[in-house]
Computed example of a mutant assay.
Amino acid sequence: MPLPLNPAFAATFSPPVPEARRWLSEIPLPPDLPLMNLSQAAPVDPPPAALRQAMAKALEDDPGIHLYGPVLGHPALRERLAARTQALYGGSCNANQIALTSGCNQAFCAAVATLAASGDQVIVPTPWYFNHAMWLSMSGIEAVPLPTDSSLLPDIETCAALITKRTKAIALVTPNNPGGVEYPAALLSAFADLASRHGIALIVDETYRDFHTQDGPPHTLFANPDWDQHFIHLYSFSKAYRLTGHRVGAIAAAPARLAEIEKFLDTVTICVSGPGQMAALWGLENLQDWLAQERREILRRREAVTTGIRSLRGWDLLGCGAYFAYVRHPFDAASPDVAKRLLAEAGVLMLPGTMFRPETDRRGDQELRIAFANADLPQIATLTDRLRALS
């Protein structure tokens, strides 16, 4: 007799990125075309040399880096991130409103775990970030799809109509994964007002904020002196300083909320990686110029992808920004089949839109996500040529 399985897990779809990776062993690649893996946006390069050297020194010289640390994170990093948040957004943010997590995915899981229980609802715009949908599903929480418009932006009135007594939060990602779009400051303020009126949380995941096209604050949510009553902010150091393997994320929220989140973190991981927190702190203190240069390069790549996709007959660019472009393909086939054809005939691996929408939403059949952040300008030109050859 098989062991029991939590029915919520049984009902949750498999992780999309590992599924796409399996295609690499199942589908023969074109022998004359090097693989272009545009399925995942995690940086493939290591952290900058100066940061690696600082980490190596700390590993050797600081015995405390190898020990358990405070559950909510090291005070120095909480202080520095609070100061950075306040400097970037204005308003007020203090260290006691900051907690560190093992990556931004854990930040989302921890926040939701304190907000909602099985049978509750969280509203999520579609196309959605699949790991958010997976956590809600595994927790027995209903992910309520919020359709977006032709620019992949969610509508306030549509969202308001979806709120019920079971709704506990609205979860937004900006710059968006998978769509790449940046939510305007006024739209975010409107969502914050909506959440406040209904007594629910607005969760805003800004994992990719360091690659925003706009100079200055992306929004003014922290300017509200009572921001932490309904607003929960999520951030990641993974993309900013190439620390994906070290798993350092953050939550900004009310101290009382963080006290509840501490229960989750202490039970799941006890504390965030010591070397990872050290690296994040060093990055905040020393890598702002380097990060600005990284941003400029990402913006150049964004412009190249935008120009390239718009030059292709039949392809529609729905959104492009930070690490992602989201497109509508021209083929008379569902996007999983198109993605496999692109791999087999063009040597390009990208994810089908069906991975970012509920099964009942067939718009995903015509959509693909292009994770372009690891492709340089010549590679983006090559991508455009390969797509044009198949169109």
Rank of each mutant, 00 (worst) to 15 (best):
Q106M: 15
A107F: 09
C109Y: 13
A110E: 06
A110G: 08
A111K: 07
A111M: 07
A111P: 04
A113G: 08
T114R: 09
L115A: 07
L115T: 09
L115K: 03
A116Y: 04
S118V: 04
S118A: 13
G119H: 00
D120C: 02
D120G: 03
D120I: 02
Q121C: 07
Q121V: 02
V122Q: 03
V122T: 05
I123P: 07
I123C: 09
I123H: 03
V124Q: 03
P125Y: 02
T126Q: 08
T126Y: 02
T126W: 02
P127K: 05
P127C: 01
P127R: 02
Y129C: 09
F130T: 07
F130C: 00
N131L: 14
N131I: 14
H132P: 00
H132V: 15
A133D: 00
M134Y: 10
M134K: 09
W135P: 00
L136P: 02
S137W: 01
S139Q: 10
S139M: 12
I141G: 01
E142R: 07
A143P: 11
A143K: 01
P145C: 06
P145K: 07
L146F: 05
L146K: 07
P147T: 01
T148M: 05
T148K: 03
D149N: 15
S150Y: 00
S150W: 02
S151A: 14
P154I: 06
I156C: 07
E157L: 12
E157Q: 15
T158K: 10
T158R: 14
T158Q: 14
T158G: 14
C159V: 09
C159R: 10
C159P: 09
C159N: 09
C159F: 12
A160F: 06
A161M: 06
A161E: 10
L162K: 12
T164M: 05
T164S: 14
K165C: 03
K165I: 02
R166F: 00
R166V: 00
R166W: 00
K168F: 01
A169Q: 11
A169P: 09
I170V: 15
I170C: 11
I170L: 15
A171Y: 15
L172G: 08
V173W: 11
V173T: 15
P175G: 11
P175W: 13
N176D: 15
N176W: 10
N176Y: 08
N177A: 12
N177H: 14
N177D: 14
P178T: 03
G179F: 04
G179V: 06
G180P: 05
G180I: 05
G180A: 08
V181S: 08
V181R: 13
V181M: 11
E182W: 12
E182Y: 12
Y183K: 09
Y183V: 14
Y183T: 13
P184M: 09
A185P: 08
A185S: 15
A186D: 15
L187P: 10
L187V: 08
L187H: 06
L187K: 10
L188V: 13
L188C: 15
L188P: 08
L188T: 14
L188W: 10
S189H: 13
S189F: 05
S189D: 14
